[in-house]
Amino acid sequence: MALTESDVRHVARLARLGLAAGEAERLRGELASILGHVSAIAALDLEGVPATSHPLDLVNVLAADEVVPAAGVEAALANAPDPVANGFRVPPIGA
């Protein structure tokens, strides 16, 4: 399947990744080459083979529902680029 520059722009938008001038063209070539290599596995017949998400054979357990201290507002805001009144200020949506 041929990857187009417009596909690259669409995926970049999904990833919220800005592209510099010429980057879509460069990425198109790189991604096509990587996908060409990895897409071989799309063709494997794996009917009936379950997926592995955790390699260990684990069963789910429930933790006790206990209140434990959290970081606190001051610590949570310590690295914020633009903290304001117990929150993170961001530019407006759709300005």
Binding site: A15, R16, L17, G18, L19, A20, A76, N79, A80, P81, D82, F88, V90, P91, P92, I93, G94, A95
Partner: peptide, 21 residues
């Protein structure tokens, strides 16, 4: 938004995209 680099932009989506770029 919460930590790390922020590149300012007039719109929040442009801010995400420029920061990550």
């Amino acid at each position: 938004v919460r930590y790390g680099l922020r590149v300012d932009a007039p719109d929040v989506h442009a801010m995400y995209e420029e920061t990550r770029r």
